[in-house]
């Protein structure tokens, strides 16, 4: 066994793909010598050289578009968008090209776009957003959001071996996460299978990415009060494991969906609706949502903290839910 971080396992998984498949190459801003803004690609330039670990100019539409073209021609590009906020610049290429290649043209686009999301570091309104909601409604894009070290590798391996575009979300607060794992990489994991983080009978807490550790801590707080909450980690938003969601909702009858982004138009609404459509007859209380308020995420520590859901606010919601 060994202790490995989220950052490290991502790096090892990328290195493994680069070693095994000559079609794989990495592209992004400052991913070479600098190693990426969060250090995920550190050291890869030295092993694989500048042709396969390509620093790009600050031109998201150009290099994301180029990655899509290269993928359509048979390469397997892995693009890093330094902060998910910057994906807005490349949204045209992802929405109007990558997402359409399979359905309209019948062409494979094995593209992985890795990008850090989320607040908690005081980076301000344009370096902290969780913008997955902008892409979950674009058929053709898979949205993956691992919350653990082993899932980060397992899901990235699946993304790297796939035939269609993936937006791979890495919450900034997860990078230092540690896990005890055997040597080597964990086995790959298919998309569309939610993880039951802990079992419980009183309520279901649904979360993804950076909200999963908060939900887990909330469950611990609640357990100390005698409230056994079940925590589900979506792992992938598209495809969504409706079956596991519904099974848990039927079991507990009470559901809270937690989302880091603002409340209105969030993916939590989709999750809640899927559960309601399939399990309304089993619900003992209206489904609740906990999300950030509908404002841009401010920079000051106390203001940011006032926006983001955390273990305490999740526990408070669950207490109200089971009352």
């Amino acid at each position: 066994m060994r202790t490995v971080t989220y950052t490290q396992i991502l790096r090892e998984t990328l290195a493994d793909a680069l070693r095994r498949d000559p079609r794989v190459f990495l592209m992004g801003e400052d991913i070479g010598t600098y190693g990426g803004a969060f250090g995920v690609t550190r050291g890869l330039l030295q092993e694989f050289g500048p042709e396969r670990v390509r620093d790009t100019p600050i031109s998201e539409p150009a290099f994301v578009g180029a990655a899509i073209g290269a993928a359509a021609a048979g390469s397997r590009p892995v693009v890093e968008i330094m902060f998910m906020d910057f994906i807005a610049l490349a949204a045209d290429q992802l929405i109007n090209m990558a997402a359409k290649l399979r359905y309209v043209y019948g062409v494979s686009c094995p593209l992985v776009v890795r990008t850090p999301i989320g607040g908690g570091r005081g980076y301000g309104a344009t370096h902290s957003q969780s913008l997955e909601r902008l892409f979950t409604g674009v058929p053709g894009l898979q949205i993956v959001a691992p919350a653990t070290v082993s899932d980060a590798s397992a899901l990235l391996q699946t993304a790297l071996a796939g035939a269609d575009p993936v937006i791979f979300l890495e919450h900034k607060l997860l990078y230092p996460l540690r896990e005890e794992l055997p040597e080597g990489l964990p086995p790959a994991l298919p998309f569309g299978r939610a993880r039951v983080v802990c079992e419980g009978r009183r309520a279901t807490i649904v979360a993804w990415s950076g909200m999963v550790p908060q939900a887990e801590r909330a469950a611990e707080l609640l357990a100390a009060e005698g409230i056994q909450a079940e925590v589900l980690d979506l792992r992938t938003l598209v495809p969504l494991d409706t079956e596991t969601l519904v099974a848990s909702a039927r079991k507990t009858g009470r559901v809270l969906v937690v989302e880091e982004g603002p409340r209105t138009g969030g993916f939590a609404a989709e999750v809640a609706c899927r559960i309601f459509e399939a399990a309304h007859d089993s619900l003992d209380a209206p489904i609740r949502r906990l999300a950030a308020p509908d404002c841009p995420l401010p920079a000051a520590r106390n203001l940011e903290a006032a926006c983001l859901p955390n273990a305490e606010s999740i526990a408070t919601e669950v207490r109200a839910l089971v009352r």
Partner: peptide, 8 residues
């Protein structure tokens, strides 16, 4: 940019 990807 797609064309540049084909060239890449």
């Amino acid at each position: 940019p797609f064309a540049v990807g084909l060239a890449l």
